[in-house]
């Protein structure tokens, strides 16, 4: 079985997907390329194991303790409002009641 090594262009593509593109300079590609390849050689061992008959979702279906909370808004309005204010105050760029974001439209 051939070992998978990531090419520089593949690493760049993954960096774009992960929004880490700013970091993907040559130094990053050198350093990470080598380390990622070592790691991938290791986890490639998993591909060799025959696990037919098991669905990836099997574990999820049999989990005992996990339940989602009820779909309810917190009834404690004081607590809720305080948290809401705190979250809005943390927003770094505000103009009054407007929260500033970078534009995503082209010219």
């Amino acid at each position: 079985m051939s070992s998978k090594t990531l090419s520089k262009s593949e690493i760049k593509k993954v960096a774009r997907l992960a929004r880490l593109e700013e970091s993907a300079d040559d130094k990053f590609l050198e350093e990470f390329g080598g380390q990622l390849n070592d790691i991938f050689e290791y986890i490639n061992e998993l591909k060799k194991v025959d696990l037919t008959g098991i669905s990836p979702l099997d574990g999820v279906r049999t989990t005992t303790l996990i339940e989602l909370r009820s779909d309810q808004i917190d009834q404690d309005t004081t607590r809720r409002d305080k948290i809401r204010q705190n979250i809005l105050n943390a927003f770094p760029n505000r103009q009054g009641d407007l929260l500033v974001l970078p534009g995503i439209f082209e010219e």
């Binding site: 880490l20 970091s23 500033v100 970078p102 534009g103």
Partner: peptide, 26 residues
Amino acid sequence: IKESMFYAARDLFGPEVKRRIMMGTY
């Protein structure tokens, strides 16, 4: 405030966190 702000913020992750994000994304 432009699209690159995403990258500027995320560039601040340390190398191991970036490694994990890369591995997970791939």
